[in-house]
């Protein structure tokens, strides 16, 4: 009986998995992204991805990851991208990282209570890899928004920065101590 139930559960899992719309792409296909050319009248935003804090807290870093930490803390240097209408901070991150082939892992908006995408790891550097208080945070125009990364709609000229923190943001410049919410 127990075995039959497990077999049924297995088949249901496979069927459900196939039915809920699986999209299989090859590596080339996935990274093939179109980055719009910057023209004079196009609205632009900038993106920067940094992991400086890890360099100061190498002793807390999970062993074996030292090789994958950028020596200057720069994963993506400040680059200008064209803003498409309705772009959120996550759309920008997704587009830019695909273009530069930087691996990003995230939790979909349906899988958490905040209804927002949660960025778990960028460039092999994951949440909790540098102590229990570590993870990715984002900054727009020098401030940490208290909204999810896929809820923040960007404006023309916004400067988006993604920072890795080893101490829930307290080791980052511009982090406001009073606000309890951690961005992204």
């Amino acid at each position: 009986m127990k075995k039959d139930l497990l077999v049924v559960a297995f088949i249901l899992f496979i069927v459900g998995w196939l039915v809920t719309g699986t999209k299989i792409q090859s590596v080339e296909e996935y990274y093939l992204t179109h980055i719009d050319e910057i023209t004079e009248d196009s609205e632009t935003v900038t993106l920067e991805i940094r992991s400086d804090t890890v360099l100061d807290a190498m002793d807390k870093l999970k062993p074996g990851l030292e090789k994958y930490v950028e020596p200057d803390g720069e994963i993506l240097k400040k680059t200008e991208y064209v803003l498409r209408s309705g772009d959120t901070a996550f759309d920008l991150l997704d587009r830019a990282t695909r273009h530069h082939r930087i691996p990003v892992e995230y939790q979909g908006a349906d899988y958490n209570i905040y209804n927002s995408i949660y960025v778990q790891g960028i460039n092999y550097l994951y949440e909790f890899n540098c102590g229990p208080l570590s993870g990715w945070m984002y900054k727009v125009n020098g401030e940490f928004p208290s909204r999810g990364v896929s809820q923040y709609e960007l404006q023309d000229g916004d400067e988006v920065e993604f920072h890795y923190t080893c101490d829930v943001g307290r080791d980052l410049v511009g982090y406001i101590r009073q606000s309890k919410k951690v961005g992204n």
Partner: peptide
């Protein structure tokens, strides 16, 4: 079958790793 279930379920939930084979739902 138990083996197969775990072996299939695990990589569809964990996406870390240096060598991507293919992309499943992004």
């Amino acid at each position: 079958f138990v083996f197969l279930l775990i072996a299939v379920a695990y990589p569809s939930y964990v996406h870390n790793g240096f060598t991507p084979l293919f992309f499943l739902n992004d």
